[in-house]
Amino acid sequence: MSDLAISATGLRKSYPAAKGDGTGDKIVLDGVDLAVPDGTIFSLLGPNGAGKTTTVQILSTLLKPDAGDVRVAGFDLARQADDVRGAIGVTGQYSAVDKLLTGEENLLLMADLKHLPRRDGRRRAAELLERFDLVDAARKPASTYSGGMQRRLDLAMTLVGDPRVIFLDEPTTGLDPRSRRAMWGIVRELVAAGVTIFLTTQYLEEADQLAGRVALLDHGRLIAEGTPEELKRLIPGGHIELTFASAHLLDAARDAVGAGVPDPEALTLQVPSDGSVRAVRELLARLDERSVDVAEMSVHTPDLDDVFLTLTGRPAAVPAPAPADQKQETSR
């Protein structure tokens, strides 16, 4: 018994180029290696079009890779796809509920397809409706559910057969902050119960909050991997951002501090700092000595956004400049 829930080496996938395009095949995954220990949360982080959804589709048997060895839940993906399917649960980016059926019927459908005995299926459905706060809506068609409710039903359906490995492809995209926090709570409970979670997200905060290990995917390649703490250590520390009322004050401040990156348009000065109270106090004292008034101040401790920016030279919020990628991700 291996102690890795998911392992992949040399995962490759490309799509044939559009006709007359002349650019050759579109490479979506370019040699990705993954190792996810049992009972942990692993997050694949990257902008739109990085190849996250393709990775999930391959690991969940929806798509065949062009190359690479993959094992999921101890089974070989190429030779034992059906055993893999028996061990996993998938909640994709797009709602995978039957909208004409009620919430309860959707759960019972899953129970039947997981071949649970009728009575166990009913009990499990009732349990999940309770746990995901869907009891009141249980007998209403899923088409009447709000986005957050559909997402909860979706995840509840994934849990019916007690999968050992769960894939969540951007589980909180499009959810309001409250639903997002609720989803995070559920994910934490699942892992506490021993399930392995493979999560993709474009939200750095989400990976930071949930994942034991994070891998950064960019243009089909892993550009960094580690715990959130390890990744944050990859970048130079944080900074303090000072805003001034005039260009004159900005210049004066720069002279006083003797360091930092000024932005004459925004009238801000970024001063490298560890963000400690002592450092802030010293900085402000020095400006005070020269009577330089600070209009605003913010302390910026490093987060995964900085990691991304440092490693790719682009902020993570900006999609990779490859519209074709995005198309691949949204097509089924």
Binding site: L62, A96, V97, R332
Partner: peptide
Amino acid sequence: DMTEGIIARFRTMRI
């Protein structure tokens, strides 16, 4: 039906 996510879900199940 094929445009709905539920079919993708069926495909990831042992059925």
